[in-house]
Amino acid sequence: MGAGAQNGQGGLPDIRSIERFLYREARLLDERRWSEWLALFAEDGVYWAPLTHDQPDWIDHASLFHEDALMRQVRARRLEEKRAWSQQPPTHTARIVGNVHFDEEARWPGPGPGQGPEPRIVVRSTFHVMEWRHDTKRLLGGFYTYHLLPEGESFRIALKRVDLIDREGAHEMLEVFL
């Protein structure tokens, strides 16, 4: 088991509680409720989309997204700026999250909160995001991996990792959070 994958500690939560959390997160993104989405993250949580299939970390390699709280806030603020030209019209998304399961093998990919001793739950799912803006509709897809920290009845996100299946391909702009 890799560092940080500590699903065994104190037993796993009901998978239904995980699904409820992920579906709510998906809805917040699809409804562009950025501030509520930002609040789902732990203070030092990371939003990460690797650029390659075998990318070991986000320090010595470029990423499609690598955002801490500061950079997530910048993105959320920019998307709502009145002169965000590329958001005229805005991006609309609808996503499906499925195949939700615990992933004992998932590894924490870099320095940060994942090094700590706190119990964490590692969850993997498959997603499709249908995205539409202006005259273009596109389908993005891949896998989500979450490192979740239990907090009361819910969770906080220590890591949201997005592995796009075409991450090594040529891309149009990726403006909204996936």
Binding site: I59, D60, F65, H171, M173, L174, E175
Partner: peptide, 23 residues
Amino acid sequence: QRAVVYANVVNSPSSNVMPDDIE
């Protein structure tokens, strides 16, 4: 590592700067 940060912030398809250029 700083060059990687520059690439991520300025030259990634997810850059907050580039989409308005492309637009």
